[in-house]
Write a protein that binds this DNA or RNA. Structure first.
Length: 278
DNA sequence: ATGACAGTCTGCGACTGA
């Protein structure tokens, strides 16, 4: 159609690029976030760990760059947001299954238009350490709720992308030191088994679908020179249902933001979805 | 080497994260 092409859509050629990034405080990271939005110009950005209530989100700076915005925030910790060049229709701002859970870790919205309509979720799965604690139980329960919800989403005839910080390294090849991390909540069989259960539902790990290599990471600890040594973990993921996977173009980890001053300890992962072919 | 991280607010120390 003759619709005007918005700035930043050139690389997508009518498709759209969806990125997930744990920014570790949207206020502390605002210059980094704006630099990234200006240079990469994703059509959709799924942010985690904004660490502020929705009313404190730097809305104007984002909207000035042509993004619509949806936020599920809370004071001090957690918090997720979705930025999109096209309007957002929020579907839910909490993960169903536990009315008593007030942590802001899940936000789901429908965005895109015409042949590029897509349902996206920005999710921040609990860390779960130390293993054996109530935090670990919360992580596994949260993952069980995500599995149940992901199953209900399969009934929809639309593309679905569940993106964010899963706090799970799916396999030893996603960890710089698998032996050292064997008993960590990010690598435990209980965590990995639930991640695999998502794949068994039919969701596709977009990065793994496009890359066979091991030793590619999305997170590097601030301490002990982990970034300079490239000692990290791949824990941020884009999971695609079949409708989305059928449209999957490239999927890449953008290491650029991790190397900048005042960086988050995570870096973005993004994928490109082409137009629906029908 | 008496060190070597970075957010948050309960704020000059404690808590959380991965």
């Amino acid at each position: 159609m003759g619709r005007a092409t918005a700035p930043g859509r050139t690389a997508a050629k009518g498709g759209l690029r969806i990125a997930a990034w744990n920014v570790n405080s949207v206020k502390a990271r605002l210059p980094n976030l704006l630099d990234w939005l200006d240079s990469f110009t994703p059509e959709v950005a799924l942010l985690q760990e904004i660490k502020c209530p929705a009313e404190d989100f730097p809305r104007l700076e984002i909207e000035d760059r042509g993004y619509n915005l949806a936020v599920a925030g809370q004071k001090s910790y957690n918090g997720v947001a979705i930025l999109s060049k096209t309007p957002l229709e929020v579907a839910r701002d909490r993960l169903p299954g536990d009315e008593g859970d007030d942590q802001a870790r899940y936000l789901e919205a429908v965005t895109g238009s015409g042949r590029t309509v897509v349902r996206v979720a920005s999710l921040y799965l609990p860390n779960g350490n130390p293993v054996g604690s109530d935090k670990f139980a919360y992580k596994l329960a949260w993952m069980d709720r995500l599995l149940a919800h992901a199953r209900t989403l399969l009934a929809l005839d639309e593309a679905v992308v569940l993106g964010g910080d899963y706090n799970i390294a799916p396999a030893d090849g996603d960890v710089y030191d698998p032996e050292g991390w064997r008993d960590d909540a990010l690598c435990r069989p209980e965590s990995r088994g639930r991640f695999r259960a998502l794949l068994h539902l039919g969701y596709v790990d977009a990065w793994r679908a496009r890359h066979a290599e091991v030793g590619a990471f999305t997170y590097w600890d601030y301490q002990q020179g982990r970034w300079n040594r490239d000692e990290g973990l791949r824990i941020d993921h884009l999971l695609l249902n079949a409708y989305a996977a059928d449209r999957l173009g490239g999927c890449e980890i953008d290491r650029g933001p991790r190397g900048k001053p005042k960086a988050s300890d995570h870096t973005p992962v993004w994928c490109e979805l082409g137009d629906a072919g029908w």
